[in-house]
Amino acid sequence: MNIFRLLGDICHLVAIIVLLLKIWKTRSCAGISGKSQILFALVYTTRYVDLFFTYVSLYNSVMKVIFLASSYATLYLIYVKFKATYDFNHDTFRIEFLLIPCVILSLLITHDYSPVELLWTFSIYLEAVAILPQLFMVSKTGEAETITSHYLFALGAYRALYIVNWIYRYYTESFIDGIAVVAGIIQTILYADFFYLYITKVLKGKDFKLPA
């Protein structure tokens, strides 16, 4: 564990809590892509099956349980409790266009052909692109609530911090996981446009609106 990874994990946790609180407090999931949340739940489910097979640390196990529980709680709020506020008309990204390539890629490029490892690899590839339905929704409506933009920023910052963590681990532990690094870089790049608008607009107190 190093400071970059810890900060990354904290950003990840903050993102999830911000999203849950936003939906709970406003009693609405307007502007939130349920499809992205389905993909994230799938990411955690496929990645954290190792919860039953490997023990890394208490921190590791607790965080995995939190990510799993919160992702299903988010799905419950969107698709059951506050279903009436779910903006399905704007949540039209075809997730099979992400799922199918991720399945194929995880069968082609993996560390090991064991079921748990293939699920891990799939989860890494899927996480890289899981935010696309949400970004697609924002681009369709041309705007995002300030709180939604905070959520997206924290979620993007998490993987960006992991990149610094990987560089640090490469030099201090000679540890490198090529699959996670390449997917993590792609994941961060997908947020680049958003980061730019967040920093130039939201942090200056303006609304998050895409340029016309």
């Binding site: 990874r5 994990d9 990840h12 190792d50 490997t54 890394v56 640390s57 590791n60 965080m63 995995k64 990510f67 560390h111 090991d112 064991s114 490892e117 891990w120 992991y162 963590n165 532990e173 000679s174 540890f175 490198i176 996981d177 996670a180």
Partner: peptide, 10 residues
């Protein structure tokens, strides 16, 4: 380089 399988990250 440690390329053994085993993921300690989240």
């Amino acid at each position: 380089l440690d390329t053994t399988v085993g993921h300690d990250e989240l």
